[in-house]
Amino acid sequence: MSNREKYDNAFIESFEIKKEALNKGLEYQSIPQWDSVGHMSLVAALEDTFDIMMEMDDIVDFGSYETGIGTLKKYGVDVA
């Protein structure tokens, strides 16, 4: 599985959404599932998948499907 597929799966499984929902508009609080609780599940899923431990600031600033790709780059994970 490519990193992109793993990245997408983390969103799909954490929020129980379809692949079609993964787009630029997918942001924190843009769907009911992505609330603070959903956010923690997503972060946990990403950390598990890529075997990383994210810093508090990066977790709080992980604001969207799109910008998250840049955040993961900081941890040596190339999703793009």
């Binding site: 924190y28 609080q29 609330d35 603070s36 609780v37 956010h39 923690m40 972060v43 946990a44 508090m56 977790i59 709080v60």
Partner: peptide, 13 residues
């Protein structure tokens, strides 16, 4: 707010 809430959950976790 949302940010503080996330920080609280993460720290506790």
């Amino acid at each position: 707010d949302g940010r503080t809430s996330i920080k609280q959950s993460r720290a506790l976790s």
